[in-house]
Design a protein around this nucleic acid. Structure first.
Length: 410
DNA sequence: ATTCCACTGGAAAGCGCGGTAG
DNA sequence: CTACCGCGCTTTCCAGTGGAAT
């Protein structure tokens, strides 16, 4: 990163090999929004959603929409696409703003409001600086209201994966802001969830203020998955995809409830595998390899991303599984093992209460399975923890952590 | 039907960190 | 500088829980 400010790519054979496979890899990125004529099999959903948003284009209130559907069913895609179109369709006299929030990243009310304010802000116009943290929730709201009124007539907000957000009053505050006279700008909310039950578990007060229509996205079928991938083949150089690649990737994705994201992921991975192995074409074998790759990557990311204490808890269960004929263990047993490991690697020992939650998190990630059992009169209630993933692989992955090195000699 | 028990899990609160505002 | 805020991680407290033994 020192010299070379000269323009244009330089023909270095070390860095050009990838171009043999890919022409425009961006087309396979996750957030990529294809042009309208490339969105497959969602015509009905698009026109329904468009009707709800119609108000925004003409400067009055768009309706709120709750979208349900499994992952990779095109929910975010269609929403983003329509926001873009609404912007284009609006006349010169109507200022439309749109914002996309991923609630997996912004999990609290404050974070979402601050992100909204930041994304909708334009410091040149409003002369408002939005700090990314440090303010109280109410101050972030006030900033947001000011920004909205200075810049827009109507705004469409997409809240993706809203079921991952821990508070729910956000929906209420956003939808009430206009009628409460806090702003004159109108807000339309598109809330996206992959849990159908989401609306049921909302607070009554929230439910009544968040007036909404519901929209359900069906999973893609195998034909649609193939078409989706065909539409993106120009991410690759001409003729590098062999004929079996797309049908196989479609088959893998169809197993996962027709997940289009998965399909595209496999396709991209397959291209990367082919590229790394210096092949001229992407073949069936690359797809299979990519599929395995993706699963290992996912697991590795899950484990290596978690804090040391969580790893230790998981390691305790792993050691028990490796050194015993049993495969499931009571929390107290796992905790004993955990204490031993902590003592050995000089790590603070957490309370049992906290420890239970750590294991529960692992269960949520699908690494551990927990079953509740009752031993009766003198027994009481217990949890049985069982490792789902292969114990050797888990152990290996955890021991990559420098803090865990000490233990590897045991 | 009742008792019994060892653990479960919700709630509240504390701590330290990284941040803003004045 | 002080006051304040959000947030992740943690502890402390304690009212359940529910099947087997009685």
């Amino acid at each position: 990163m020192t010299s070379d400010s000269s323009s244009g790519p330089i023909d270095d054979p070390l860095f050009t090999s990838g171009h043999r496979i890919f022409k425009n890899k961006d087309l396979l990125k996750i957030g990529h929004v294809p042009e309208a004529d490339r969105i497959v099999g969602r015509d009905e959903e698009i026109s329904k959603l468009a009707k709800r948003l119609n108000g925004a284009v003409h400067g009055y209130s768009p309706e709120n929409v709750m979208i349900y559907g499994k992952t990779g069913a095109g929910k975010s895609l269609v929403s983003r696409h329509l926001c873009q179109r609404a912007k284009n369709a609006a006349g010169d006299d109507v200022d439309i703003g749109t914002a996309y929030i991923d609630c997996a990243e912004d999990t609290t009310e404050t974070q979402v409001v601050s992100s909204l304010a930041m994304k909708l802000n334009d410091e040149g116009v409003t002369d408002i600086a939005v700090p990314h943290t440090g303010l109280s929730t109410s101050k972030y709201y006030k900033l947001l209201w000011r920004i909205l009124d200075m810049r827009f007539d109507s705004v469409i907000v997409i809240l993706d994966e809203i079921d991952l957000m821990d508070e729910d009053s956000l929906l209420m505050k956003l939808s009430r802001a206009e009628e409460a006279g806090k702003i004159t700008c109108s807000i339309g909310i598109i809330a996206i969830s992959n849990k159908v039950q989401y609306i049921d578990q909302l607070n009554e007060r929230v439910k009544s203020s968040f007036q909404h229509k519901e929209l359900f996205f069906k999973p893609y079928d195998a034909n649609q998955l193939r078409e989706i991938m065909h539409n993106r083949t120009d991410a690759f150089q001409d003729d590098v995809l062999t004929d079996d690649v797309i049908p196989l990737a479609a088959a893998f994705a169809a197993q996962e409830h027709g997940d289009a994201r998965k399909a595209i992921d496999i396709l991209r991975h397959a291209g990367e595998v082919a590229s790394e192995s210096d092949a001229d074409t992407v073949r069936e074998a690359h797809v299979r390899q990519a599929q395995q790759h993706a699963e290992k990557d996912r697991f590795r990311e899950l484990v290596s991303g978690s804090p040391t204490q969580a790893k230790t808890a998981l390691l305790a269960l792993t050691e028990l599984s490796l050194n015993s004929a049993e495969d499931s263990f009571l929390t107290s047993q796992v905790y004993d093992q955990y204490e031993r490991i902590c003592a050995h690697v000089e790590l603070d020992i957490l309370s049992v209460r906290r420890f239970r939650d750590l294991l529960k998190e692992q269960a949520f990630l699908g690494i551990v399975e927990i079953e509740k059992i009752n031993k009766g009169s003198a027994g009481g209630i217990h949890l049985q923890n069982r490792l789902i993933e292969d114990a050797h692989i888990v152990r290996e992955t955890i021991l990559e952590d420098t803090r865990m090195q000490e233990w590897s000699t045991e």
